[in-house]
Design a protein around this nucleic acid. Structure first.
Lengths: 107, 107
DNA sequence: CACGTTCTTCACCGCGCGTTCACGACTCGA
DNA sequence: TCGAGTCGTGAACGCGCGGTGAAGAACGTG
């Protein structure tokens, strides 16, 4: 199940506005690139659930993930860095080795 | 009888989501490796009944259990440890000496 | 075209994962 | 009481997955 087009999404202290391409962390605006934003949106459309790299790639990049492509991991890292700098005390993106990633404001 | 493909499985306070590789213990996400997850799934597909090592190995590893292979026991131990840490008051995996293991939220 | 930004790819490395071994506790039958 | 079989448990080890920094390609904007 995906979030419908432009709806506002809340995940913990994060507020994602798909229509504007804007993310607010505790009220303060985050500067994200297009890819970073799409990836966050893909993760946010399955909050609390584990999403495979294939699915994330499909949603954020479009097309199918080629074997050996690490783009997904690299951008998870970039996203993590920015989220962590905005909200140091929280961990949002959790790794599930062998499965994928899970966006969850609660540990 | 096995659980069909992706159905959500509930065992006591455990919620197993086969499609995601995710287990919730009382709502909180558990971090399990692929093997641990598959083993739990194998046990959960026969809740309340004793499952032989051969059957567990067939379901979680694939192929037949070679004599002397202790992988199954080792992973039962790993699973127990994680379940016990998540839900200290309960015992889920019960040993039936000479027969196998039984997953049961009730003693 | 020039320049800054974004994206992809690469390489390195630490750590988690799965397998296997070793030892000890326990049970049961001879 | 002894030996064989079963199971719990910690640890060693090789390997692949994922974290991470950086270089270079591609993009977009003026």
């Amino acid at each position: 199940m995906q979030t419908s087009q432009g709806e506002l999404v809340r995940v913990g202290e994060l507020e994602i506005r798909p229509l504007e391409g804007l993310v607010l962390a505790d009220g303060r605006a985050l500067v994200l690139s297009v890819r970073e934003f799409d990836l966050l949106l893909a993760l946010a459309s399955h909050v609390g659930r584990v999403v495979s790299r294939e699915e994330l790639y499909r949603q954020a990049w479009g097309g199918t993930l080629r074997s050996g492509d690490r783009s997904c991991d690299v951008y998870v890292h970039k996203l993590r860095t920015k989220l962590e700098r905005a909200l140091p005390q929280q961990r949002f993106i959790h790794t599930h080795v062998g499965f994928g990633y899970r966006l969850d404001p609660a540990q």
